[in-house]
Design a protein around this nucleic acid. Sequence first.
DNA 1: TGCCTCAATGTTACATTATAACATCAAAAG
DNA 2: CTTTTGATGTTATAATGTAACATTGAGGCA
Lengths: 157, 157
Amino acid sequence: MDNCFGDSMKNIGDIIRVAEQHCESRGTRLTKKRKHVLTALIESAKALSAYDLIDVCREKYGEDIPAMSVYRILEFLESENLVHKLSTASKYASCENIIGDKARCYSQFLICKSCSKVKEVGLKPTMIAELQATVKDASFKLVNPQLEMNCLCDDCA
Amino acid sequence: MDNCFGDSMKNIGDIIRVAEQHCESRGTRLTKKRKHVLTALIESAKALSAYDLIDVCREKYGEDIPAMSVYRILEFLESENLVHKLSTASKYASCENIIGDKARCYSQFLICKSCSKVKEVGLKPTMIAELQATVKDASFKLVNPQLEMNCLCDDCA
DNA sequence: TGCCTCAATGTTACATTATAACATCAAAAG
DNA sequence: CTTTTGATGTTATAATGTAACATTGAGGCA
C-alpha cells in the first residue's frame, strides 16, 4: 500500500474531497481555482511550472488565471502540504500522500531533467537520521528535508 | 584533512594554480576572466548568483563582464568540476576539493536560505548506494548525485 | 611576419520565473 | 445587509537565464 488512503482512494475526486476536508479542518478553503490547480497537478505525471499551470487551466477549465494568482495558489497549496515546489526544476508537483502522515513528509523526489516526470519516494528513517546528523555537525539547521535528485527517466534515458 | 591538497594547500593562489594545471592537462584554458570568477567564488563563504558575480568582478577587478559571459564562464567552470551550481538557490559555489578525487564528487550541500552560506560535505558510500538503489527501483537514472539541503546556518537561526 | 582557425567573449534581444504594491471582489460572520 | 477579511485581479518590474549572431584574440603554421 503506497499511500495513506489505502486502496479505496484511487480517483481524483476522492483525493480532492480529502484535500477539501483537510483544508476545512484547518480553517482554510480549497476554492474553485485552488482545486483546479491542484487537480491539474494531481493529474499530471510531470512537474509543471506556474506558467504551464496557467495553460492547463485555460485549456481544461476555460479559466484565465493570472500568473500572480497561480503563484499565490501554489504558495497556499504548499502551506497546506498538498503540493511540493521542486526548486531544482522551478516546477511544482502534487504531494503523493495528500493528507500525509507526518512521518512521510521527508521525501526524495526523482525528477527527469528531460521530460519533468517526477516520482516521490519516502526517505527511510535511517537516511533521515544520517542527513540530519550531517547538518547538525556542520552547524546548520535543516529547514526542509526535501531531497531533489536530478535524473533521467527510463523513457528519456 | 578536509581536502585533497593537504595542509600545504591553504591559499587561493595555490588553488588557482592547481585549477590552472587541471585545465591545461585537459586541453582547456583558465583565462583571466574565468580565473576572476573562480576566485570570487573561492573567496566567498556564500553562494553567489551570476549577477552577484558581475558586481564582485566590477568592484574587485574593475572588470565589466556581461551576464551572458558570466553564465558561459560558470558553465565552463562547472564542466571542469571547479564550481557547482546550486539549483535550489540559483546560485553558484566553488568546489571544496578543486582537483577532486572522484570519490568525493558525490556531495551534500548545506545552504543557508537566509544568508546563502554554503558548506559542502562528502556523502558516505552507504548513503550514495542507498540513494542510487532508490533511483534504480523507481526506474530512473541518476544524472547528478548532488544533494542540496535547505537549511539555516547557526548565525541566522 | 602575416594569415588562418577556433576558442572566448561581446552584443542584442528576449524568454522564463517570480514578486511587490495596490485595487477589487466575494464569502462568512455579526 | 453591512462589515470584515480572505481571495483574486492588475500592473509593473525584478531576477534568472538563453538564443543568435558579431567580434576579438591566442596559437599554429606557411
